[in-house]
Simulated assay, not measured.
Amino acid sequence: MSAAHLTVWYNTRCPVCEAGIDWQRNKLLALVRAGSVEFRDINEQPDALAHFGASLDDIRRRLHATDQAGRLIVGADVAIALWRMTPGEGWLAALFGNRVALPFTRFFYDRFADLLFAWNKWSGRW
């Protein structure tokens, strides 16, 4: 497990996002309790990442996070960072985050995120 700090911003109005983050949060409970990982609802602080140029819709579309150095991490890279921190899931980070697989991982993550975002908008979740 890494001692790095990660603050993950996600959309609680999306039932798929909410369920996924709840599941991941439960796996990372020790790190959450230690303050190494935070999960924050972007709907409570819609301008939280505006200084990075990230709009509310950007964050509702894809996961966003900041690391211990204050750098912005977006999309599939957030999932990979979480897998690296999660006991027993480092293999997922190695499989999907290696230099050969990463472009495909990002592409498929983004397409799924686009579909999920459209579905949430169509369903009137904001």
Rank of each mutant, 00 (worst) to 15 (best):
G53I: 06
A69T: 10
V8I: 04
D67R: 15
V74T: 12
F39C: 04
P103D: 02
A3M: 15
A65Q: 02
F107K: 13
I59G: 02
W122D: 08
P46V: 00
G75P: 00
M1N: 09
D110Q: 12
G88A: 10
L102Q: 11
Q68I: 12
D58M: 05
W91N: 10
G88W: 08
W126S: 15
A69P: 03
T86C: 06
A48W: 03
F117K: 09
G53V: 05
R40S: 02
S123N: 11
I42A: 01
N98R: 11
A94N: 12
N120L: 08
A118L: 13
E38L: 12
S123D: 11
A30T: 07
A30M: 06
L95Q: 09
A34G: 04
W126G: 15
A19S: 15
R33W: 09
S2W: 04
T86N: 06
V8H: 01
N11K: 07
S36Y: 14
R60T: 01
L29P: 06
W83P: 00
N120T: 11
A118D: 09
T86G: 05
A54N: 10
G97Y: 01
Q24L: 03
P46W: 01
I73M: 07
V37M: 04
L56P: 00
R111N: 06
G90C: 06
W23L: 14
S123P: 07
V37I: 09
G35D: 02
V78I: 08
W91V: 11
R84Q: 13
G70M: 08
I73K: 13
L29M: 15
V16D: 04
W9A: 09
K27D: 02
A50C: 07
W23S: 06
G90P: 00
D58H: 10
A34Q: 04
L92Y: 06
D67A: 14
P87I: 01
